[in-house]
């Protein structure tokens, strides 16, 4: 039997790696992927608690988080394409104006 704390520790490590990625990456798409990583780390926590407490709501949250992540990826990548079309770059340092 794997103790609960192991799952939480894995989740914490993954979350931290994702957070570091958001700070150090300069490419919009890579930053996006790091955000997905953070979302997944949180999902793991929710599922671990849900499974240990035998309570389904945690898993339903994860289900909803997944749909939100899908919507976010769709809109976010559309934004990325729009930005790239206008600026020919995905470097966050180049995207510093409040317009496309």
């Amino acid at each position: 039997m794997v103790p609960l704390s192991w799952y939480l520790a894995l989740s914490a490590v993954l979350f931290t790696i994702g957070a570091v990625g958001v700070f150090v990456k300069r490419n919009v798409i890579s930053i996006f992927m790091c955000i997905e990583l953070m979302l997944n780390a949180v999902n793991l926590t929710l599922i671990a608690f849900s499974s240990f407490y035998r309570e389904v709501s945690g898993q339903l949250f994860v289900f909803i988080v997944m749909t939100v992540a899908a919507a976010e990826a769709g809109v976010g990548l559309a934004l990325v394409i729009a930005v790239f079309r206008n600026r020919e770059s995905l470097n966050t340092d180049d995207i510093n104006l409040l317009k496309l």
Binding site: I29, N40, M66, L77, I81
Partner: peptide, 25 residues
């Protein structure tokens, strides 16, 4: 963690759809 349904959905939605979108872009 006995969450088989979400395990499968994780592969279908995240790995199979969202990441295909990323790779596509």
């Amino acid at each position: 963690l006995k969450a088989q349904f979400l395990g499968a959905i994780q592969m279908i939605v995240y790995a199979g759809a969202i990441m295909v979108l990323f790779v596509f872009v």
